[in-house]
Amino acid sequence: MHRTFMAALLASSALVFVPTAGALADPIGRVTMVSVWAYGTPPNQATRDLFEPEAVNSDEVVRTVTRGALHLSFLDDSVLRLGSASTVTLDEFVYDPSTSSGEMAINLSKGTFRFISGNMAKSGILFRTPSATIGVRGTDFAALVGEDGTTRITVYSGEVIVTPLAGGAPVSVAAGQDLTVSLNGETGELGNGFETVDPGLGEDEGFDGSGGGPGGGGGGGEGG
């Protein structure tokens, strides 16, 4: 009887402490706001609804629906905001808070985005779109990525270095300027900057009550 009880107890303990198959890796940040609906697809996992303050992970694909928005805060206190019908892949995030060193790589596939840098050394941060790479230099910038892969970038503070993927010299875009890069590598003249019209990129954009549950987001089926 005693041995039977102990065996059952050990089996129960194993069920409690053994990690669930396919469990998420160490989080790299968290959701701070969802408007309408947003979804995340971690590596080797099913797509899930995203809610505040759910964690996100490296290699996770996150996206919003039409008229939706999603705000993420990473471990170095940098911020990424997605506007309507937008998709990104959080390719890589490694950060050492004791030295502020690390690497961040994010793929902006389509939609509207705003990034505000945090404590990570800016030399380790790189964004990629279908038409360009974007290196940051202490930066608050927005990017609009069209269905045809064209990328338009505007800088609110700091500086970004934009390099066309199809070839061509890097272009420095400073605060108050904007630049357009096409899929074939053509770059327009530096403009005088622009304000994005997508309300989901604003700091105070919040859950509008049209779907999901407490904290905003999720539910209602996929769309975009």
Results as ranks from 00 to 15, higher is better:
116 I>M: 06
33 M>P: 00
7 A>S: 06
179 L>Y: 13
173 V>R: 12
221 G>T: 08
147 E>A: 15
212 G>M: 03
12 S>G: 09
220 G>T: 04
46 A>Q: 07
127 F>A: 07
21 A>H: 11
175 A>N: 03
6 M>E: 14
222 E>F: 14
4 T>E: 15
32 T>D: 10
105 A>C: 01
201 L>C: 04
68 G>E: 10
81 R>T: 14
99 T>S: 15
108 L>G: 09
216 G>S: 10
189 E>L: 09
121 A>S: 05
51 F>Q: 11
102 G>R: 03
143 A>F: 04
65 V>Q: 03
93 F>T: 02
59 D>A: 15
102 G>W: 02
117 S>W: 02
187 T>W: 06
60 E>V: 09
209 G>H: 13
220 G>Q: 06
135 G>Y: 05
56 V>E: 08
188 G>W: 08
133 T>Q: 09
219 G>A: 08
66 T>Y: 14
215 G>L: 13
105 A>T: 08
158 G>T: 07
63 R>L: 02
220 G>A: 06
213 G>H: 09
214 P>H: 02
35 S>D: 08
183 L>I: 13
221 G>D: 06
87 T>A: 12
120 M>G: 11
74 F>D: 09
101 S>F: 12
18 V>A: 15
165 L>W: 04
52 E>N: 15
178 D>T: 03
85 A>V: 03
178 D>I: 02
75 L>I: 00
49 D>A: 14
104 M>K: 07
11 A>V: 08
30 R>P: 00
144 L>C: 01
118 G>H: 10
30 R>V: 09
134 I>K: 06
120 M>H: 06
122 K>M: 05
88 V>F: 06
51 F>I: 03
124 G>C: 11
154 T>P: 08
109 S>T: 13
87 T>D: 13
180 T>Y: 05
83 G>I: 02
16 V>T: 12
209 G>P: 11
121 A>P: 00
29 G>S: 10
79 V>Y: 01
9 L>H: 04
101 S>K: 14
26 D>H: 04
26 D>P: 03
17 F>G: 02
99 T>R: 13
36 V>P: 00
45 Q>A: 15
115 F>G: 04
20 T>F: 06
9 L>W: 07
77 D>C: 01
194 F>W: 04
85 A>D: 15
113 F>D: 09
181 V>Q: 13
48 R>Q: 07
187 T>D: 04
10 L>C: 08
199 P>T: 05
89 T>W: 02
139 T>E: 11
21 A>R: 12
138 G>Y: 01
98 S>R: 07
63 R>T: 02
54 E>P: 00
111 G>R: 09
41 T>P: 01
111 G>P: 06
1 M>L: 07
94 V>R: 04
61 V>R: 15
176 G>S: 11
17 F>I: 12
193 G>D: 15
82 L>V: 10
130 P>L: 11
87 T>R: 14
129 T>K: 05
